[in-house]
Design a protein around this nucleic acid. Structure first.
Lengths: 344, 344
DNA sequence: CTTTGGCACTCTGGACGGCAGAGTGCTAAT
DNA sequence: ATTAGCACTCTGCCGTCCAGAGTGCCAAAG
């Protein structure tokens, strides 16, 4: 560990107290408050010395001469990595999460929608969920439904209950019989494989097939990227925007606008959530670490959930000044419950 | 028409000029500005008299003694209903709308998503679109896909390319053969009917059917509300939130929060758009006319579009101080183009 | 009777100065 | 190494002041 992070006992304690207090009040914290809150009898003057040290190491800073100190991003990082005493979620919250998530749902999308809502509600921050990648999902059934003379709907159902539908242009008229022949052939050839596998091998698998409508089979081969890739579909759910926009860090209307744009644009957020997916742990991204402009003063707590062979991510976004201990346990527990629900 | 709306030539002109100017500047308008902008040579003093009259009738008001005048809701109403010279959309905008909407799409939802984006972009306000009611949509095909031991996916495809999918709980194991029998029976019995008709008559239609899995048929009868009603699914698309939150009327953070909540909650908005659907005209809802708290200082311009036998609505939401003439023609033209695209 | 110039009046918003409060850094004493 | 004391600095708030904008009314002019 770099030298700047080698803190002695008092420095650790002071930094922890400072951040805890700042998280609660959103006001710069002075030496007096720390000295009185910090039970080991030590005077404000002593604390001031410690504060000066911490500032030298870049862990805290002063908004201006003679205000209290405020944690820097580096400070938060150290706090999250080494100072945080992980906190068990209250029974109340655990039950609430479980109860709200355990409802009848009509589609997997609905569960993730609901999950975002639950995250937002329990955390009073922004809840975010993304659908899993289709890449590794196992195809259960493929179906074709004629819609108009020139358009046909492709329905792709994969294990665990996802369905994707899309319209494709077809050249020729196809009668009912050869249509169902084609559907049967397709199902025989590709069911039970992952979408990724299908994409890579469909040409070979359909090669030399004699029955079924050749036009349609050709269509599948030609448009395999469009049909079997999910980059186009909307995969993110956010909930609780109103929770966080009233917070201090959005007082500047320009920042607010930038953030709302970010939410609407979706792409960067999806990228953030999908990108920071450690295999099984929780990932905390603080402020500019995300390299996303609109998240300058915000942090994200992210964890993956499992569904069948594949996985997606959920998370909470809020001001860097967030209750990390609590939010980490919220995300952790929610991801666990979600994985359970989806694997039934 | 009520007496308060019987305006003479000058009063009409003054009100029109005042509103035009206020829309542009967002500042209270004084007599001097009106007098100079208003070409017929007449002095500020005269205008002041007219303004006093208009104020007596409740069409305009002063934020405080000795500020200029600002239109009231009633004033806007009169302006929209009687003073507005309808404006043909610029060729530029028409082409832009047509071009942006005429793209390949993989689902009807995508078109409406894109439409909301186009509305937002051309108007610099909030674009809103809602999916049509399924009630009158004609069923093209119904399909069943087993997902897990106890869950089955119902796929409902209706004319014009919509698909709805939902998961239902099934009691018994169903083998492949009786499943496809059941699907065939269902399709024979209900294809070509509207979802509403099906909901009302499915019991009779399936009565006395001998082949097919009786458990499944029973399920359809018992759960017809869930399966055939669309109130649960997300039917609204909004785009361009960042366009309007930086405007003057959202300076008060509490108002902003209320508005964002409104957008997230969706329900009131859907209700507003579906509710104000005149058969073929444009509907303009000004401020509190909507009876929705979060829209206190906002107006909505709404029009329906057609798709097959049914219809949905699109609209623009922005400050009451909006360019009604332009936005009306934007919504009008966009709805027309959208109907064309969807009927292909 | 309508229009207009003139004028006194009112209200806002920004600039300015003064001041209490909070917090610091440094020094000297313990 | 810790602490008390102290001088110093910066913010945020409050009251005052003033220019600017706009009005309403009155009396004169058309």
């Amino acid at each position: 560990m770099a030298k700047q992070f080698e803190l002695n006992e008092r420095e650790r304690a002071v930094l922890a107290v400072l951040i805890d207090h700042y998280i609660r009040t959103a006001e710069p914290v002075g030496s007096r408050v720390i000295a009185t809150k910090f039970n080991l009898g030590v005077s404000p003057a002593t604390v001031r010395n410690t504060l000066a040290d911490l500032e030298d190491r870049g862990l805290i800073e002063q908004p201006h001469t003679s205000a209290g100190r405020v944690p820097t991003e580096v400070g938060y990082r150290l706090y999250v990595d080494h100072l945080l005493k992980s906190e068990r979620l209250s029974k109340n919250d655990r039950e609430k999460i479980k109860r709200l998530l355990t409802v009848d749902y009509g589609a997997v999308e609905d569960v993730l929608d609901q999950t975002a809502r639950v995250l937002a509600q329990v955390s009073s921050q922004l809840g975010v969920t993304v659908l899993p990648k289709f890449e590794n999902a196992i195809l259960t059934k493929i179906d074709l439904v004629p819609v108009t003379d020139t358009k046909m709907m492709v329905i792709i159902a994969v294990k665990s209950g996802f369905v994707r539908t899309l319209l494709v242009e077809v050249e020729a008229q196809v009668d009912q019989n050869s249509l169902s022949d084609t559907v049967q052939i397709l199902n025989e050839k590709v069911c039970g494989l992952s979408l990724g596998e299908i994409r890579n091998t469909i040409r070979e698998r359909l090669h030399g097939v004699s029955n079924g409508e050749p036009q349609l089979l050709k269509l599948f081969i030609d448009q395999k990227e469009t049909i079997l890739d999910d980059t186009s579909s909307p995969t993110i759910h956010t909930e609780g925007t109103s929770n966080i926009i009233s917070q201090k860090e959005f007082q500047d209307p320009e920042k607010l606008r930038e953030f709302i744009s970010l939410l609407e644009e979706r792409k960067s957020l999806v990228h953030l959530l999908k990108g920071s997916s450690l295999p099984d742990g929780i990932s905390v991204t603080i402020g500019t670490e995300s390299n996303i402009g609109g998240l300058r003063d915000l942090s994200a707590v992210i964890k993956t959930y499992k569904i069948g062979q594949t996985h997606g991510s959920i998370g909470i976004i809020g001001p860097t000044r967030m209750e990390y201990a609590k939010l980490i346990s919220v995300v952790d527990y929610t991801a666990k419950v979600l994985s359970e629900i989806l694997s039934r």
